[in-house]
């Protein structure tokens, strides 16, 4: 599956744009987008799938003024225009983890442009007590402990640098760097977002992998309660990245909700 470069003023984005039908936007999480992942092909089989690499991820450039997810929401709105998406045609928007946060920022900016919204293990709001992190601080955890948070079956997804090219490793490292830039402070949230989520007018589905060690069921429930009418679905045998660990169940859940 090929990606291409789309140049916007001040930023170049790597964009997967494949398949046909009404546009479906997929916003990746902290680990970036692997266009070869099975869920990408499965989504593109039924819709025109548009999946940009966020600024600072994959082959996308990182402008020096970008340091928070709302900045990326604005850039992606420009991207939709650049791709010729008719502003009057409502979009389906799916975002995972950090991408869920960006999707929520887009949904509160342009609620009328969203037909259906799917947030998969999203971060982006602070809902819990002042003296306990809503999302564990992955930067204080060992690599093994982070993997345990991310995956239902960590052993299956263990990183093997020897099997990767320098370029692949460099992209992975840069993705991590940009994630830190965007999420470091306030940790994994925009304090203003929760006060804007009532503006979301699209039917919204929250999805959580049942073994997700980063986004707890309680956090997700409190997040969903901020979005009018939102519902929650759980995917079994998956951690923070159900689209990677259980692509079939993930794609089925998404399409069941989108109804198209």
């Amino acid at each position: 599956m090929a990606t291409r470069k789309v140049s916007l003023p001040g930023v170049d984005l790597e964009v997967f744009d494949g398949g046909s039908g009404a546009p479906l936007i997929f916003l990746h999480g902290a680990s970036g987008l692997d266009a070869g992942s099975p869920f990408v092909g499965a989504l593109a089989a039924r819709r025109r799938l548009i999946a940009p690499s966020h600024p600072g991820f994959g082959a996308s450039s990182l402008p020096d003024w970008v340091d928070a997810p709302p900045d990326i929401a604005h850039i992606h709105l420009e991207l939709f225009d650049a791709l010729g998406i008719d502003p009057s045609q409502p979009l389906d928007l799916v975002g995972c983890s950090l991408g869920g946060w960006i999707a929520a920022e887009i949904a509160v900016l342009v609620p009328a442009r969203i037909r259906r919204l799917v947030l998969v293990g999203p971060v982006g709001v602070k809902t819990g007590p002042i003296d306990a992190l809503d999302i564990p601080d992955i930067y204080t955890l060992s690599a093994a402990a982070v993997d345990k948070c991310l995956y239902h079956e960590p052993a299956r997804w263990k990183l093997d640098p020897a099997s990767m090219t320098d370029k692949q490793l460099e992209i992975m490292v840069r993705n991590r760097e940009t994630t830190a830039l965007l999420t470091w402070e306030p940790w994994m949230h925009n304090p203003k977002l929760r006060h804007r989520l009532h503006r979301v007018s699209a039917p919204t589905l929250f999805i959580r992998g049942e073994s997700d060690g980063l986004v707890s069921a309680e956090y997700l429930a409190r997040y969903a309660a901020l979005v009018p009418g939102a519902t929650i679905s759980t995917i079994a045998a998956a951690g923070h990245v159900p689209h990677i660990e259980q692509p079939e169940a993930f794609v089925r859940t998404v399409f069941d909700f989108l109804g198209a």
């Binding site: 930067y139 460099e170 490292v173 840069r174 760097e177 830039l181």
Partner: peptide, 11 residues
């Protein structure tokens, strides 16, 4: 921590 040294050095 991510970003403290550049990506190629981390690789």
């Amino acid at each position: 921590p991510p970003g403290y040294v550049n990506a190629s050095a981390v690789v």
